[in-house]
Design a protein around this nucleic acid. Structure first.
Length: 879
RNA sequence: GCGAAAGUGGCGGAAUUGGCAGACGCACCAGACUUAGGAUCUGGCGGGUAAAACCGUGGGGGUUCGAGUCCCCCCUUUCGCACCA
């Protein structure tokens, strides 16, 4: 099979024979056959992708968000995992000890729905789906360390959810309270605020309105960490700014002052709460309090209910306001609600100036922010201004703009004047102070006199984790008639989720209908006790699963802290931006809690976060109703796993949306076939020939190929390490192949390329050809692992490609010897000249001036100036 | 309304720091090979022209020898947030 130094007749005969062989068996690359072959080999080696324990090498933890086992992967998954897999393979080739695990976020409502629909128990349905999707992942060739697989619905995982819950309870971070909760009638369960869409609908049922109900619920005190969660966002330099901003908004920190307005009892009204009670308001602008001309309550403020109970007329009006507010919330345009209000007939006392001001109820005041009550300062707040104009409330100016020009200081501003850098007037002893000083001074005064204090309010609410559903982690709590709320002792964990139970979507928690589960004994008194029948929100499962990967089979603890310390933080986390808030804020909270109880030493779980774009088709998100769903199985069957993966990386940069086009993946399939054909047509087998030839030994054609080779290594490496633009990595590899094909087919022989007379190939020494092919395989390995492995074998390599070192480029070999320099006259392209790469400026200019096109372009004009950018261009300015 | 990202051929997209706009791929056109071509190979492919000139990166201005890239104004799209007191 060695090529050179054959007698011509021999070579011709050989070529003819090869031609015939090719024609008989289809010439095309049989991706299915090759991929199945490697897939089988890879299955046999369970240690292939295993992360090393006690490794001396530098670690790299690359993680893709774990999927919900719905039953089938979609293209978004394929894209997500193709990015992660390329990175994992690249890091292996760069010598890192890589942790690349996968698991299943396998609790949740769809399993219950499926149970009802198909009469299949949730566990069976879920595990069946996992098996299917795992097979898909293996077929796609993703390099996961399956020995660390985490399945959140199995007791060996969820027992640690329960264990964490006990720890949280012990630290006072888990508590029970009755509260208004979001209730989705479709899910028949409570939703976290995060799970209610902005249009007031359920995140799972986008056309089902969420209702409000009063229920006893378990909450986690995430608000204890609100400040730190906000502050540490600044340390997450490897996160997209967009995600950090979203989290900042979500946490919604706001500094201000709480002020109590005492109710005026001079008139001794009944039904206005106990005597002496007051309305607490939150304001960021206590400096404007002398301009407060009313107090406004949210329609659902408890005090309003008291008031209205004695006043049917008011009751009716308040109900109207509640209805308006709810409607606006449901429609998702609470911001555009038409402001309405009603005077309660009562008054409150401004503690600063002891003025008596009316108490109103207004539909734009939200019960779930601040205290559900505000002081209304029409002169200095847009909303208050609008409201006051509408209802003819007094508008009193108390802040003036400060101007650098003393003449202007006292001009009256256009109302409402809301700037923060004003000066107080009409404000008693505070008149003349600037706003910032006044806020401090007045807050202190309020605190000293016991009617208020400086405070910080967050939009972030405590995390309600109770779900009235079956398919989740049982909350390990008991209710004893004598001892009240009693935690399940740690030694009794796990509280096993019973099987074979009837599931309905009505009638509260399904576990409540299982007496064997519910009825138990109190560990304190031995008396009768009931188990908690609610299960945990599935976001609990995903808040710490990535720690479990590091030590997945530990049955004494959720993980070994030492092992975690080696692997954490996660070096690169990859997933959809739709998890920017919920999952990522909960996991950050969980990490901080674990740190505080001494389990981990890192403050944050994720060093670098990457949010990929969506996969769309025909300009729209894939959905069954639009009928534009592309199935990974079908793509793999038609084009192969490599093609599906490569296309999902090639079609767009990974952070942008990807518009799926079937003709595009066909192009990728052709490319893979072309690569394979190149190796088949240009075999290298004699190991001794594999020596990098010196540039001086090469003819221009070979030297040019060698240069392209090293330029390509540089481009692929740079784009991988820097911008993560896999599309340009792949196009660089395509260019290299095109160049190699051109050189091997021979430029003088293009008229008859298919006769087998690839004589020009002789210009390329075997050593260079070997280097080209060797490098091509390495460059391709992270993106198209199947083909890469096949080619690796074809060129006679026996080592493990997965750990083969990533190629290095030689800057000297990559360097151009001659450059084509564009010549501009007055900024317009007028010619090109060929100069040595190290040509001096003078030489470039002289060469340019000798060029015919340039000559004619500047004929009769005077050269005013020349700009020469070395290696880039020459611009001659003439007049 | 606020914030962020984006707008480049028929399409997906290149152009990383202000330096040849359109790499790579798709689609299309022509040719070669062929019993055949949904295989493969070669060539062409922003508009315009006989060829040039010239015109071209959402629109308008500006800075510069030189602008897709920087500055100002405007338009459109996508995403996020939104009476947050």
């Amino acid at each position: 099979m060695t090529r050179p130094d054959r007698e011509p007749e021999n070579r011709e005969r050989e070529n003819r024979e090869r031609e015939n062989r090719e024609r008989e068996s289809d010439d095309r690359y049989d991706a299915q056959r090759v991929e199945m072959k490697w897939s089988e080999r890879w299955q046999k080696d369970s240690q292939l992708y295993a992360a090393e324990r006690d490794s001396a090498r530098k670690k790299y933890y690359v993680l893709e968000m774990l999927p919900y086992p719905s039953g089938a992967l979609h293209m978004g998954h394929v894209r997500n995992y193709s990015i992660g897999d390329a990175l994992a393979r690249y890091m292996w080739m760069n010598g890192y000890n890589v942790l690349h695990p996968m698991g299943w976020d396998s609790f949740g409502l769809p399993a219950e729905n499926a149970a009802i629909q198909n009469q299949t128990p949730p566990r069976q349905w879920t595990l069946g789906n996992i098996a299917k999707m795992k097979a898909q992942m293996k077929r796609l060739g993703f390099a996961y360390d399956w020995s660390r697989e985490v399945t959140t619905c199995l007791p060996d995982y969820y027992r640690w959810n329960q264990w964490f819950f006990l720890k949280l309870f012990e630290k006072g971070l888990a508590y029970r309270k009755k509260s208004k909760v979001n209730w989705c009638p479709q899910c028949a369960t409570v939703l976290a605020n995060e799970q209610v869409l902005s249009n007031g609908c359920c995140w799972r049922h986008e056309d089902t309105l969420v209702e409000q109900r009063e229920l006893e619920q378990w909450f986690l005190r995430i608000t204890n960490y609100a400040d730190e969660l906000l502050r540490d966002l600044d340390t997450l330099g490897g996160w997209p700014e967009k995600v950090r901003t979203m989290q900042r908004n979500w946490i919604g920190r706001s500094e201000g002052t709480l002020i109590d307005f005492k109710l005026d009892y001079a008139e001794n009204h009944k039904g206005f709460g106990p005597a002496g009670s007051s309305i607490s308001v939150f304001t960021t602008r206590v400096d404007t309090i002398y301009g407060a001309t009313s107090v406004q309550l949210a329609p659902e403020h408890p005090m309003v209910a008291d008031l209205a109970s004695a006043n049917p007329d008011l009751r009716a009006k308040v109900d109207q306001l509640i209805a308006e507010q709810r409607k606006a919330k449901e429609a998702g345009d609470i911001g555009e609600i038409e402001k309405h209000g009603v005077f309660t007939g009562r008054y409150a006392i401004n503690p600063f100036n002891h003025e008596r001001i009316p108490v109103w109820v207004a539909n734009y005041i939200l019960m779930d922010y601040g205290t559900g009550a505000i002081m209304s300062v029409p002169a200095h707040d847009d909303r208050d201004y609008e409201f006051a104009r509408k209802y003819n409330l007094e508008i009193r100016l108390v802040i003036l703009p400060i101007s650098n020009d003393p003449e202007e200081t006292m001009t009256e501003p256009v109302l409402p004047f809301t700037a923060h850098d004003g000066m107080l007037i009409n404000s008693g002893p505070y008149s003349g102070m600037d706003s910032a000083d006044a806020i401090k001074t007045m807050s202190r005064f309020a605190e000293q006199n016991g009617f208020g204090k400086a405070t910080v309010t967050f939009r972030l609410k405590d995390w309600g984790i109770s779900r009235q559903r079956y398919w989740g982690t049982p909350i390990p709590m008991l209710y004893c008639e004598k001892d009240g709320i009693v935690p399940v002792p740690e030694t009794d964990l796990p509280v096993i989720l019973p099987e074979n139970i009837e599931i309905t979507l009505a009638g509260g928690s399904p576990l409540g209908h299982v007496p064997e589960f519910v009825n138990t004994t109190c560990p304190k008194c031995g008396g009768r006790a009931r188990r908690e029948t609610d299960t945990m929100d599935t976001f609990v499962d995903s808040s710490w699963y990535f720690y479990r990967y590091t030590d997945a089979h530990n049955d004494r603890a959720p993980f070994d802290s030492k092992v975690v310390q080696y692997w954490f933080p996660i070096d690169q986390y990859i997933g959809g931006v739709e998890h920017a808030i919920l999952h990522l804020i909960y996991s950050r909270f969980w990490t901080k809690f674990m740190r505080d109880v001494g389990l981990v030493s890192n403050d944050e779980p994720v060093e670098r976060l990457f949010t990929q774009g969506m996969v769309i088709k025909d300009g729209a998100k894939m959905s069954k109703s639009l009928g534009n769903v592309v199935s990974p199985d079908e793509m793999v069957a038609r084009y192969g796993a490599d093609a599906a993966r490569l296309y999902s990386l090639f079609a767009a940069p990974p952070d942008r949306d990807l518009d799926w086009q079937d003709s595009g993946i066909e192009g990728i399939q052709r490319f893979l076939g072309k690569v394979h054909r190149f190796f088949k047509n240009n075999p290298i087998s004699d190991i001794t020939e594999r020596q990098r030839p010196l540039p001086a030994q090469l003819n221009p054609s070979a030297r040019s190929l060698q240069r392209k080779l090293h330029q390509t290594i540089k481009r692929v490496t740079d784009d991988f390490q820097g911008r993560w633009h896999f599309n340009t990595c792949i196009s660089a590899i395509m260019e290299l192949l095109n160049e190699a094909n051109r050189r091997m087919l021979g430029s003088e022989d293009t008229s008859n390329p298919n006769t087998g007379e690839r004589v020009k190939g002789d210009e390329i020494p075997p050593g260079l050809l070997a280097e080209v092919e060797h490098t091509l395989v390495l460059l391709l390995a992270p993106f198209a692992p199947y083909l890469a492995h096949e080619l690796w074998e074809m060129i006679g390599e026996t080592g493990n490609l997965l750990k083969a070192p990533w190629p290095h480029y030689d800057a000297a070999l990559a360097k151009e010897e001659e450059l084509e320099i564009p010549v501009q006259i007055n900024g317009k392209l007028r010619g090109r000249i060929l100069v040595p790469a190290d040509a001096s400026e003078t030489f470039v200019l002289e060469t340019a001036l000798a060029d015919e096109k340039v000559k004619s372009a500047i004929a009769g004009k005077t050269i005013v100036k020349t700009i020469c950018v070395p290696g880039k261009l020459l611009n001659i300015v003439v007049k």
